[in-house]
Structure formats: structure tokens, C-alpha cells
Design a protein around this nucleic acid. Structure first.
Lengths: 221, 221
DNA sequence: ATATTTTTTTAGACAAATCTAAATACTATA
DNA sequence: TATAGTATTTAGATTTGTCTAAAAAAATAT
């Protein structure tokens, strides 16, 4: 039924999924090329193939979106990726900035029994170490209402539930400042000059973050 | 230094290692083709490439053997494979006949930190679920003196330490009979007619096995 | 609305890994 | 030793995924 895709095809599918999540609409050839560090011509070629396989809907010059089938397959890849991330952090003591590249490889091992057993072994986690939801075996995912930390009104407090940037550089910075998934955060002040914020972490630690950082941290109020 | 090989190249290397271990030092093109279910012409092509990369020593029409470098690389692949097998059996509750295909995929994820941490997580196991030794990070492996069960002299007892055939069919048969790695086994009688054996398992269970089965079970006396 | 710029697609080439069919080299036998 | 029979290699084709260069379509600016 759901025939196996190659590693390259899986990566394209995943990329289209992430880009259409972020922007909510049709994804352009150039966007994809940029995201996976390849040339637009290569993207065109691949989109044609994925379209033939019915996993995307593709109209020349107008961009691309996932089909129902493609969406489901993308969510399965993401499920594998995020389960492995949980495994790496919780069982193998990786730090949250080290897991991404390794999970990029592990996600392509497509063995349903493996993933099912891994899920069980990990205690059916609902979120990965970066706070992103893990799709279940049917491709459904649990979402939490979230706002950007930069949008939290002054005086309000919430819990950090996710980050929008998983680069090692960003995550290492967060470690240094003391920010982690699950931390309590209170918006104390906003500096007009540059949009930076003054915050209180876990009721006692006063920290300052830039507007850019605040826009990449998601909070549950 | 040790540049990365493709999945296909890794599989060839591993195959040459296993075939040269199981008997002669030079491995033939046809043997390899048979082992990895491909055509001799494809093998010739690949051997040329592997020879260019200095991982095998290859003389046309005379067969191949691994170079020092190739040997080391093969042992690293085998290390990854066997560590994953231990993980699958001990942590994810796979049975020993289910692990091979999955480990075949996982072994190609080449991330040194991952394997190092996995090894640690598993408690630095020295043998995989089939009793085969796991090479350490330098490619060295612990060997146990072993004899074929079919060669155990009458009246002697030993411990089952490995199997030479990891096919699901064989392993399922062993489960059915009650044979497992670590079991105590005593050679009670040998039937002249067909070479089959009468054995006592764990001091109490009388079983009979064929000559073929006995030749694929290894015992530590 | 026309011209210019940007984006996207096509055309043609290449490397990896495979295949079939044909040629060549070893081996065994009469 | 000549020859029939395997084993192995080469030649040429195919598929997948990529690339560069050039053409075509869409977007933007004048």
C-alpha cells in the first residue's frame, strides 16, 4: 500500500512538510532548494517524481503541497525522528544540541516493529526533547496551545514548551542562559529600544534575551 | 583518514569479511554474488572500486581479500550490527530470530558517538544474542574456544555459546526444541545411521538433533 | 504595457550501483 | 595438449539523484 520511499525522497517530503507548516501554504522550489542545500533544478526533478508517486500535488511554476498520503508519510518520518531524539537524550545521555544529525540518519530506518517497540520502551512520549509533538502511529499529533515568548504580556508567566530553532548554536546558548523545556518563565519587562525582554526564570533567576531569541521560544500560558 | 563508504560498499566489505572468515583467505566473485544476491558482473564492478579505495586486495580472476584497512572497517560495521542486536533483544524485547534484518539497516548509521554511547548503555557487552563476539572500538574481538556440538565427545558436557546460522527458520527451531545461548548441553549418544545426536539439555531434558543442526551449534567445553 | 529581473523548468551530462549479453581467462578432461 | 566447460570480466544500458547552462514563465519596475 504505502510503498517505500528512498532516503532522498523522504527528506524532500519531510522538508515540504516543515516548510508548509511554517508558512501554511504552497512551498516554492527555491525554498526547498535552500532548505536542503541543493539546486533548484534538482528540486524540480524530484518534485516531478514525487508527484508521479502521488505524495505531493505539484503544479509547474506554482509550488507544491503534500497530498493526504504524503502528509501521512511525512508524519511517520517525523515520528521516527522524534522518537529517536527522545531515545538519544533520555537513554544515551546526548544533550539536546547533539541529537539532530544522528536522528536525521536513524529516521530513515523504516521498520514498523522497531518503532513500535522503541515507542513502548520510551513510555509512549508525546513530545521530543525540543518540545515538538511526536505523531502517533496513525500520524495524529497532540498539540499544545503555544505563544511566542516574545508575545507573552508583561506580568504573565508560563511554561516553556518548545523551541523553533534546533541548531546547536541556539540550543547551546539556551543552556548557557539556563533556559530549558519545562522551565517556568515570567515576562517582567520589555525594552522599547530593541524589543529585548527581561524575564524571571523559575521564580528566581533574572535574565535578558533578545527579540530574536524570544521569537524562537514557545510558551504555554 | 578512514573515509566514509556507501551502504553498498559496506555490505560488500562485510560479506568479504564473513566469507574469508568462514574458510579460505581468498574469496571468489561468484561466492560474493551468491551471498548478497546479485550478479557476478556487478561484483566485478564493485571490487574494482573497492580496490581503488585500498580496502581490498584484488587480482583479476584470482579473487579478493581484505586489506588491513578494509579489515578494520569491516570489524567496525560488524561491531555496530552486533551492538544493535543486543539492544534489540535486551531493551526492545525482540526475539533472536527477529533482529537480523533490522540490525542490517541500523549498522549503516555511522555516528561514532552514537555507537560509543550505545555500547556504554548496554554495559559493554562482549557477545551478541547469537553468541558472536562484538569487536571493541579498535576492532579487536574476544574469542572463545569453541567446538561444534556435533563434535562433542560422548559423555562430555559444555555450554552453548553460539550458532553458525542466524536464519529465522533455524532460530525458531532452536526455540521450539529449547536450545538457547548459555544452555548446558551433554552429549549422551550418537546414532550411527544418520549422525544424529541424543543430548541432555540443562541436566534434565532429553532431546534429539540432526547432524546438520549439531554442526551449526557451537559449544564451550 | 513593455522591459527587466527573478524564479522555475528543461536539456544534457555525470557518478553510483545495478543489469544483460558478449568476450575472455582460467580449469578440467578426454 | 586441445577442447569443452566454468568463472570472471568487459561493454553497454538503466535507474536514481545530482549538477550546469540555457530556455521559459512569472513577478516586478519603469
Amino acid at each position: 500500500m504505502m510503498k517505500k520511499l528512498s532516503k532522498a525522497e523522504e527528506n524532500y517530503l519531510k522538508t515540504v512538510y516543515h516548510l508548509s507548516e511554517a508558512g501554511k501554504k504552497n512551498v516554492s522550489t527555491n525554498e526547498i532548494a535552500l532548505a536542503i542545500n541543493t539546486k533548484p533544478a534538482s528540486v524540480s526533478d524530484m518534485l516531478k517524481k514525487l508527484s508521479d508517486k502521488q505524495v505531493i500535488s505539484y503544479i509547474k511554476y506554482y509550488g507544491v503541497s503534500l497530498s493526504e498520503l504524503g502528509s501521512k508519510m511525512a508524519l511517520h518520518i517525523i515520528r521516527r525522528h522524534r522518537l529517536w531524539e527522545v531515545f538519544l537524550v533520555e537513554k544515551l545521555n546526548f544533550s539536546w544540541d547533539e541529537v539532530h544529525e544522528v536522528a536525521e540518519e536513524l529516521e530513515h530506518v523504516n521498520a514498523p516493529l522497531l518503532i513500535q517497540r522503541l515507542d513502548e520502551f520510551l513510555g509512549y512520549p508525546k513530545f521530543d526533547p525540543h518540545g515538538d509533538p511526536i505523531p502517533d502511529e496513525f500520524g495524529d499529533l497532540k498539540t499544545r496551545p503555544r505563544v511566542k515568548l516574545s508575545d507573552v504580556p508583561l506580568g504573565n508567566a508560563g511554561k516553556i514548551v518548545a523551541v523553533n530553532d534546533s541548531s546547536a548554536a541556539f540550543l547551546k546558548y539556551l543552556d548557557k542562559v539556563g533556559i530549558y523545556i519545562g522551565a517556568k518563565i515570567e515576562a517582567v519587562d520589555k525594552i522599547e529600544f530593541d524589543g529585548s525582554q527581561e524575564l524571571v526564570l523559575d521564580n528566581h533567576k533574572k535574565i535578558f534575551i533578545s527579540k530574536e531569541v524570544g521569537a524562537n521560544i514557545m510558551v504555554l500560558l
